[in-house]
Amino acid sequence: MYVRRYMTSPAVTIDENATLTEAIHSLKEHGVRRLPVVRKGKLVGILSDRDIKEYCPTKATSLDVWEVHHVLAEVAVRDVMTRDPIAIRPDAPIEDAARVLHEKGIGALPVVDAKESLVGILTEHDVFGALVALTGARRGKTTRLHLTIPDRPGTIRDVADVIRAHGGRLVSILTSYEGVPDGSRELAIRFAGGRPDRIADALRPSHPDLDVRKG
């Protein structure tokens, strides 16, 4: 699962020499919150609605509305944008992009190719879409199992075998080591079809924390 599958491409961009007025119009017209800033197709910055809002009060506190419009029409995007933004390659794993967004506390990553040309943008909304896809949450009638398993080879297969033995078809498998005792891992499996009641009955004796949810 790679960035290129979930990114928005082509991205709505703006030239570094455009004015803030033009940037505001573009943000509103396209319903986006950020604009990658380009110079001849190369990424040089990123401009967000927050950047504009933070700029306006400092420059326009004592101005009336018409003077504010005049100021915005005179200021170039390059003077307000964030320069040298963190970017990512289209062939990067989607989880790497999510980690960068989380660790850096940012809401979007411009996507550039090997020649540093902008090819798209990956936003937090796109990452949420990837999470929905990876978990199979849109797959219609499914059942989700959540349980703690020993962290040793074969334990995921054992659970999957029980599901298959009762007619279930695996949709997604997720595991995590966060918040569980050492030597164990958290497991979430979504499956379609089968007999969820019989699957739960077969698993619960060895997994008393088993949680079963439909949909």
Rank of each mutant, 00 (worst) to 15 (best):
L147M: 15
I149E: 01
H146F: 15
P153V: 01
I163P: 10
D151W: 06
H166E: 12
E178K: 07
G167F: 08
R169E: 14
I156H: 00
Y177C: 01
R138T: 14
G140P: 12
D158M: 05
G167S: 01
T148A: 04
G140A: 13
L174P: 00
T143I: 13
L174Q: 14
D161M: 04
L147C: 04
T148Q: 00
Y177Q: 04
T155A: 01
P153G: 03
H166M: 07
T148C: 07
I173C: 09
L174H: 10
R139M: 13
T175V: 08
G154T: 03
A165E: 14
R152P: 01
G168D: 07
I149M: 00
R164H: 12
R144G: 08
R139H: 12
L145I: 09
D151R: 08
A165K: 12
V171W: 02
A165Q: 09
H146W: 14
A165N: 12
R169F: 11
D161L: 07
I173V: 14
S172G: 08
T143F: 13
G140F: 00
V162M: 03
S176T: 08
E178S: 10
R157A: 15
I163D: 07
G168K: 08
G154I: 04
V162A: 04
V171T: 08
G154S: 06
R164S: 13
R152G: 09
V159H: 00
P150R: 11
I149R: 04
V171Q: 09
D151Y: 02
L170W: 13
R157I: 08
D158S: 10
I173H: 02
E178A: 09
D158Y: 01
R152C: 10
Y177R: 05
E178W: 03
K141R: 15
R139P: 05
T155S: 10
R169M: 11
E178L: 11
I173Q: 01
Y177I: 02
T155R: 14
G154N: 00
V171H: 06
P153M: 04
G140Y: 13
A160I: 12
T148H: 00
S176N: 01
T155G: 00
A160H: 05
R164T: 10
L147G: 05
T142W: 03
T155V: 12
K141Y: 11
T155M: 11
P153H: 01
P153S: 12
R169N: 12
V171Y: 01
I156G: 05
T175K: 07
P150H: 13
S172A: 15
R139A: 14
V162Q: 02
P150W: 04
K141P: 13
L170I: 15
V159C: 00
G167R: 06
L174V: 11
P153N: 02
E178D: 10
T155N: 12
R152N: 05
I163R: 09
G154Y: 01
L145V: 09
D158Q: 07
I156E: 04
G168S: 09
S172I: 03
H166A: 02
